[in-house]
């Protein structure tokens, strides 16, 4: 991979590696599904605490798998009407898979993401304390950005000269302090990556292979 980055004729190697990884990952998917079923079947058979959830997991998994692979409810592609499986598996209003996606997966995923708003509120209440100078600076910045990101920033600070208005200050904080901090972290991280990759390539750190000592 490193060679292919610098040597133009070797650049296609990268694609080949990627394809191999995809193939491996596809097999791994079967492995994962098998493991999932095994774990939950074990839980159900031994009536472990919460085995009811395992039943739901197994049923949901199998139903989605069958509906998705079997393209249940999908009409064939207009260009190939003789092939029943040629249709779009996400055909709105007809495909069962689409129904699962639209009315089960979509609301569930959006709900989990929306939980963030609640957790942010509770984390802000609990953890955002002005313990020292750094924390006070952080609090001040958070206050400006939180207000500046809404219309309140404009109403409350409209009377100030333009560069001091909260919405403008927010832009300034994001452009200057945020970019500078992020760049520093990025440089540190990339050096960390180089160092770790090198250690792995040189065999200095082999713990990830499980072959240490």
């Amino acid at each position: 991979m490193i060679v292919s980055y610098f040597v133009p004729p070797a650049q296609s190697w990268k694609d080949d590696f990627a394809i191999w990884f995809e193939i491996l990952a596809a097999f791994a998917f079967v492995l994962g599904a098998g493991n999932l079923l095994k774990m939950h079947l074990q839980k159900v058979s031994s009536r472990q605490a919460g085995w009811g959830f395992s039943v739901i997991t197994i049923v949901a998994f199998l139903v989605t798998l069958v509906v998705g692979l079997g393209k249940v409810g999908v009409n064939p592609n207009a260009a190939f009407p003789e092939y029943a499986w040629s249709g779009n598996k996400m055909e709105p209003g007809s495909s069962w898979f689409w129904y699962i996606f639209e009315y089960v997966y979509l609301p569930l995923a959006a709900t989990m993401f929306a939980l963030l708003a609640f957790f942010i509120a509770s984390a802000a209440f609990r953890a955002f304390r002005a313990k020292n100078i750094e924390a006070i600076l952080l609090l001040g910045t958070a206050f400006i950005v939180l207000i500046g990101r809404t219309y309140a920033g404009i109403i409350l600070t409209d009377w100030l000269p333009e560069p001091l208005r909260f919405d403008r200050l927010t832009e300034f904080i994001m452009d200057v302090f945020n970019s500078a901090g992020n760049r520093a972290i990025m440089i540190g991280i990339s050096l960390g990556i180089v160092s770790l990759s090198l250690k792995i390539l040189m065999g200095v750190d082999r713990s990830y292979l499980g072959s240490e000592e």
Binding site: A121, A124, R126, F128, L139, I147, T150, Y151, A152
Partner: peptide, 15 residues
Amino acid sequence: LVAHLLIIGLIVVGN
């Protein structure tokens, strides 16, 4: 806007 104000309020109360 209201959510942001609530968070600010919570931070203030917390402090």
